[in-house]
Structures are given as C-alpha cells and as structure tokens.
C-alpha cells in the first residue's frame, strides 16, 4: 500500500511548527501505524534527513506513551485502542493521512510529535493515592469490597494515562483522567479516609495546570483507549459537591 503523509514537524517548544508532506510506498497492510513511521524514518535516515520524533514504548496499548492525532482523531480512527494498536489495513490504499501531536496547552510540544504530559503526574501527586505505609497493611481479606464496586473501581483504574481525553476534548479538559483516579479510589473502602481531601486537591491542581472545563460533549470517552466511561465524570462532580458540602459543614 502507498500513502501520502502530512506530518507535524516542530524543532522544539519555542520554534513554530508546520505540516510537512511525505510519501511511503509498498507498506504491508499488516504493518502497524507506528511501524509505518519507523519505515518512513529509515527512509529519511538513508536520505540524510532527520527522522521524525514520536513517542512509543510497549506498542501493545497499555503503557500510554504513544500520543498521535491521526486524521484529526486522538489515537486515529480505530477506537477503542491506542495508536500503537492501529494497523495500516484500516486505511485506503493511496490515502492522505495527517499526523499531529496531542494539542493541549498543558502538554507542551517537546519536538515534532512528542509532548510533555507531566501535568498528569502532578494531578496524581496532588492526592491520587491511598496513604498506606508498607508494613502497616492489615490482612487482605479483613475488609470486604462488594464485587460490583471492585469491578467498577477496576473499570476506572484501567486508565493508561495517555492524555487522549484532553487531546480530543474541544475544551482541552482533563476531567476524564482525573475522574478515573478519583472514582477508582472513592469506590473502595480503603480510599475513604482521604476521600474529600483527595478530590478537592486533585481538582484544584487540574485547574491550576490550565486544562479546560468539561461541557459534557463525551468526546473523551469516544477516543479513550481504555474505554473509561464519562459517567466517572459525573461521579467526580458528585464527589466534588459532596466534599465541598461536607467541608462547608465543618466535617
């Protein structure tokens, strides 16, 4: 298969970037999208040009490193799945494909298609944890968790932290990411002692990092490779209201 590619090139954070046209030929339909970029990079190298910088690591959809917007969709057209799980057979032979980074103000571009997502780490650092000192844990079966809650917590915890939710959101909001962690921990009894402070601090840092606001377009859940449901955003709103209310009551 042959493809025309329009790929975002940007030397560093400060310099302006632009779309540059490339062509790849004789690509097997069983090639993954990232392997197609590997091939393009080999071609560029042979031609004495600088390869395109893009991020990936596990290449099986779990580490959350890869982060490309393909034809205007975060992770490309094959939802649900990370862009490393996208295969060229999903495209028409001869197609023109546009590749851009995830564009969110809070994810500055490092180079070409590589972005800096440390803002997501800082949201978790604000309170996305249960303070359980190693050695202090009680016997695992001493606290039961209703299966339904455990399953729901697992659904939320499946987030791979790629940032596609914010990238796809018309407002650049990271609510799906934050809500997944808040919900995961609020659904488990172990997470209850820090329930209120956690949601208040995480939301505060999320806002301070400059992410946009949720207007319930549900674009985030449509592109989420881990299929995190936007109903966790409703849960976040609920948790936030509850925490504010309890705080105002002096609890």
């Amino acid at each position: 298969m042959n493809f025309q590619l329009r790929i975002w090139r940007q030397p560093n954070r400060k310099s302006p970037g632009k779309l540059v046209d490339y062509e790849v030929r004789d690509i097997s339909p069983n090639t993954s999208f990232l392997e197609m970029l590997d091939i393009l990079n080999e071609n560029l190298l042979r031609a004495g040009k600088e390869p395109i910088a893009f991020d990936s690591d596990c290449r099986e959809g779990i580490c959350g490193t890869c982060s490309l917007t393909v034809n205007g969709e975060a992770h490309g057209p094959d939802h649900p799945g990370a862009v490393c799980e996208l295969y060229m057979r999903k495209f028409r032979d001869g197609a023109t494909i546009t590749v851009e980074p995830f564009r969110v103000g809070s994810f500055p571009i490092v180079k070409d298609l590589v972005i800096d997502r440390s803002a997501l780490d800082r949201i978790v650092q604000a309170g996305g944890f249960i303070s359980a000192r190693a050695g202090s844990a009680p016997e695992a079966n001493s606290v039961t968790v209703p299966k339904h809650h455990a399953d729901l917590a697992m659904e939320a915890a499946a987030c791979i932290g790629c940032g596609a939710c914010a990238a796809a959101c018309p407002n650049g909001s990271a609510m799906l990411f934050t809500s997944a962690k808040v919900s995961h921990l609020a659904l488990l009894p172990q997470g209850h002692p820090e329930r209120e402070s956690r949601v208040l601090k995480m939301v505060q840092v999320m806002d301070a990092e400059g992410f946009g606001n949720c207007t319930n377009t549900y674009e985030c859940e449509a592109v989420c490779p881990a299929e995190i449901s936007a109903s966790f955003i409703a849960k976040l709103n609920r948790e936030y209201a509850r925490a504010r209310f309890r705080r105002s009551m002096g609890e």
């Binding site: 249960i130 844990a137 695992a140 039961t144 968790v145 209703p146 455990a150 399953d151 915890a157 172990q190």
Partner: peptide, 22 residues
C-alpha cells in the same frame, strides 16, 4: 502474602467474589 495485603491497602482493584472476598 504481605504483598497482597499491601496492595489491597493501596487500593489495587483485585478481582473479587460476590461475597466481597478476594
């Protein structure tokens, strides 16, 4: 055994039975 205790305390959502036990 201590690892399982520690992970549960941290909120690792291990699979559970209908009874709520691991």
């Amino acid at each position: 055994n201590n690892i399982i205790d520690q992970c549960v305390a941290q909120g690792v959502p291990f699979a559970r039975e209908y009874s709520g036990y691991l």
